[in-house]
Design a binder for these strands. Structure first.
Lengths: 132, 132, 132, 132
DNA sequence: GTGGTCTAGACCACC
DNA sequence: GTGGTCTAGACCACG
């Protein structure tokens, strides 16, 4: 799970870690009541400074998605799934929106952008070319 | 021309200046052989430190889009238009690709992402609803 | 290491710093994966403004010789040694070529230039006279 | 004569113009008592700002190689040939010396530099490969 | 007038 | 601690 942080596109590592946790909650890979992976373990797995993971967890606590359990660790909060689902959708929406805005900002004709859009969208589609 | 840098989205100013120049070259607002606006003039217009503009121009020189003419200014290089055009489409392609990757990384079902994609794409389309 | 920038021959400081780093990489004084000296440290050692060192490092990044590691420093890139080696010989080749062109441009007979060439080449040769 | 200034290697134009004049005097293309080309004419031929040519001529006057003749122009001074000859040799010597110093400064083994040196020297030799 | 170099110092995000 | 961004202002060479 969430071993990979994707490309280092300039976004802070802690933010990407937090996002991954959110998506894992939304996808019910992590369920309410379960413990999030420990800071030490996760930092080893990601080959990242423990402080960085701690920072991600701190942010998640601030958002009410993780709750500390004394002497045990951090537990996924009860209402977390729903909140993460909408976060997830809004995340996607925001990314797409700003990508489109930037693309249009170049002055390229919309048709040309749309062509690229189709190409790139298909490119990552695992079902593409399979059949039907 | 190119007076506006758009929203301060966190990207560095010098990068946005460089982009504007690129798009101006690609759109033939600035043509090869012409001089780019002087550092001092542009810095006044944008209410920005001259060093910031200079940095943008330096980067553009490194990409071979501007050429210094001693004591005169910076001239748009001869092959600049073509290079800018390709830079522009690669820029768009890259943005879309990483947006899609991030969107897929959330674990949202592809169909749902596609829905959002359509919504957001139409949202910015100035011609939308015209033909209806 | 690389404490000395040599004579102030009119070339910009940042360029000489960048050259030193390149030569250090080519000579494997700095190896891929290691961190380059920090901007602040090096600027102190060279009694130079940190921005000046930063500019040198920025140029080296643009050449793909250094890679940023967030919050940690700048790391010598993996392919850097080879690239530096070729940079180094191309540097030498270019200097010699333009020196020869300029020399020929004076209209001095080639034989006379060759004489001076031999004199000057021997002049700096530490082994000269040894074998005699 | 001296229509070409060679590559714009970063050296100031006025300096290169002055050099060309010196070499022309040394090679007796321009002889003492003759008039140097007028500022206007030369600036047109070189496609250069007249101020730039004027600056070169000013420097040459300061060195005593050109003398103003009232209402007529600038005349090559009487002792100019000899002085230019030695200037020419020293110019070549200086260029070669600094090129060698820089080449050695890279840390490349002397043998390797010498190889490049031979290659580059032959490269510009018009007699090379002709025969004998 | 032009760009280029350099200094000094502030502020930021990240690890 | 690290690098990155930006400002302010001085100084230089060139045309």
């Amino acid at each position: 799970m969430l071993i990979d942080l994707g490309e280092s596109d300039g976004r802070p590592i802690y933010g990407r870690i937090a996002d991954r946790i959110k998506f894992a909650i939304a996808g019910e890979v992590l369920r309410p009541g379960e413990l999030a992976p420990s800071v030490r373990e996760l930092s080893k797995r990601l080959v990242v400074n423990p402080n960085t993971v701690a920072r991600a967890y701190r942010d998640l606590q601030a958002e009410g998605l993780l709750e500390p359990v004394r002497g045990t660790g951090l537990q996924i909060a009860s209402g977390a799934v729903e909140r993460c689902r909408s976060i997830r959708v809004e995340f996607v929406r925001g990314r797409l929106r700003s990508a489109f805005e930037e693309a249009r900002g170049t002055g390229l004709p919309a048709g040309e952008i749309e062509t690229i859009l189709h190409e790139e969208w298909r490119r990552g589609d695992p079902n593409d070319g399979k059949g039907a």
